[in-house]
Amino acid sequence: MASTPRAVRFGNGSATVDAATIAEGLGMSASDVQPLMRSGELTSRCEVGQDQDAGLTRLTFFLRSRRFRIVVDSSGRILRRSTIDFGERPLPPSLRA
């Protein structure tokens, strides 16, 4: 099995995700990621695994009716990814959890 390139880097207690990774997951241009984050339209959540999930980090990105989620190991390699797009309907609050 080929290894997945690191799309996430950890440092100073935070995670930095490559804009191209976020853009691909949300179906947008990488050049739009930072402006949308600055405006607050694109938001994110970071959760650090505990117990059986120790060493894993789940990063979730929200934009309009879309949610993009990745789970990475401690080296920043993506282990799982998923995207949910509700089209014209708003993202249900339960998917923000």
Rank of each mutant, 00 (worst) to 15 (best):
R45F: 03
R6D: 12
A2K: 04
A30Q: 09
A97E: 01
F62A: 05
A23E: 02
G76S: 06
R64V: 10
R38Q: 11
R66V: 14
S75M: 13
R69K: 10
R89I: 00
A23V: 05
L42N: 02
T4W: 09
P90Y: 00
P93T: 09
D73W: 09
P93I: 03
A15V: 07
R45A: 10
R45E: 10
S31C: 08
R9W: 10
G55A: 10
V17E: 01
T83N: 07
S14E: 13
G40I: 08
V33W: 02
D18W: 05
P93F: 04
T83W: 03
S44Y: 15
F62S: 03
R80I: 13
G27E: 03
S44G: 14
I22C: 00
D85C: 02
T60H: 03
E24C: 09
S14Q: 14
R96T: 09
T83I: 09
F86Q: 11
T83M: 07
L79V: 11
S31A: 15
P5L: 14
G49C: 08
V33T: 06
V72S: 02
P92V: 02
T57N: 15
V8A: 08
L42M: 04
F86T: 12
A30T: 05
L59W: 14
T43P: 01
P90M: 00
L26N: 07
Q34A: 11
T16F: 02
F68Y: 15
Q50V: 11
G76E: 02
R67C: 10
F86R: 11
G55Y: 03
V17G: 04
L95Q: 11
I22H: 00
D85G: 05
I78W: 09
L56T: 06
G25C: 01
T60M: 08
A2F: 03
R67N: 06
I78S: 10
T57Q: 14
A20E: 09
T43W: 01
L56E: 04
R66T: 13
D18A: 12
D85P: 09
S75E: 14
L26D: 04
S3H: 06
A20N: 11
S74A: 12
Q50S: 14
R38D: 10
D73P: 06
L26C: 10
A23I: 05
S3I: 04
A19I: 00
R89H: 02
A30K: 08
I84Q: 12
G11Q: 09
R9D: 10
V48P: 00
A15Y: 02
I22E: 01
L63P: 14
R66D: 05
E88R: 12
T60L: 03
P92I: 05
T43Q: 11
S94P: 00
V48H: 03
L91F: 13
T83R: 12
R45H: 10
V71Y: 01
P90K: 01
T21P: 01
Q34Y: 03
M1H: 12
S39A: 04
A54E: 11
T43A: 09
L79N: 13
R6E: 14
A7G: 07
T83S: 13
R77T: 13
D53P: 09
D73V: 12
E41Y: 05
Q52I: 07
S31E: 15
T60Q: 10
E24T: 15
M1A: 08
M28V: 05
P90L: 00
S3Q: 03
A23L: 04
V17A: 01
L95W: 11
F10Y: 14
S39G: 00
S65Q: 15
